[in-house]
Amino acid sequence: MTTPLLSVSNLVTEFGGEKGASGLKAVNDVSFKVERGRVLGLVGESGSGKSVTGFSVMRLLERPGRIASGQIIFDGVDLARLSNEEMRQIRGKRIAMVFQDPMMTLNPVLTIETQMVEAVRAHDQVSKTIARQRARDALGLVGIPSPEERLSSYPHQFSGGMRQRVVIAIALLHKPELIIADEPTTALDVTIQSQIISEFQKLTEESDTAVIWITHDLAIVSRLADDIAVMYAGRLVESGPVSSVLTDPKHPYTAGLIASVPSRNRRGVPLRQIPGMTPAITMLPKGCSFRTRCDRATDECLVVPPLFPQQERFVRCFHPVMKAMT
């Protein structure tokens, strides 16, 4: 196995708390790897810490958020230790990001041209004319008709799907090695969603770009990702290749998630739910965070379970599910 492009180990991201005192752990001891050209689906409910994980890698946490400990090794360099300027040179150039809501991602008072040209010139010292040409070509690449004219438009003159294409075009401007996509299709219509996903897949495959696709949508992950990492209440609970995790989930939470997705194979059977609610990060139960909602929990679960290796996978559970749920 080659060395992975990105290797996050024991990442802890805290909000508040400084100088010895510990704050709220939005991301707690998370480790995962992304190989070049592979797609990792980072799955979890709202508040599970998946977006914060993405922003931690980008070092774009908003105060009072901060990386408390852990390593983020990107191509041999620990991003958590870089200076702000060194990190800036990586952002947008080697690691790009696509956000959830295309309505909010583009600055409403600047033209697409301004926003694309500045992105080119942030990393490459080229003339405005050349930067403009690259911007135009990038727009063409993501399937925006008559890119030349559209350059001088403002974001509000685009539809949601088109805007997300613009955002993807900006992300691809510098042919990044890694793209972090934070629910890029959640805010879009289903038909547009599927177009964007295919487009995204095509472009990243062509350029051998690695992708972290953050989502709560298992259907997208099953279609797009090579590997999957499931997060719950700030911790990674299960990770491994998509095919085996989705067909044979080991962690009760993963199993519950899969069972709660409507499927044609379970027609007529009431949809399963995971009982209870995701606990607030301020009042997590002691030990395994999923304990209170889990029907397999025992007294053993009062201690936080370690990540147990299972073949090529990891499961954070003392009582993993043994058989595939059907």
């Binding site: 790009a96 956000f99 991602t105 926003q115």
Partner: peptide, 10 residues
């Protein structure tokens, strides 16, 4: 978000 995205562009 657009400020965050501007930063994400580097």
């Amino acid at each position: 978000d657009y400020i965050k995205f501007a930063r994400a562009k580097g």
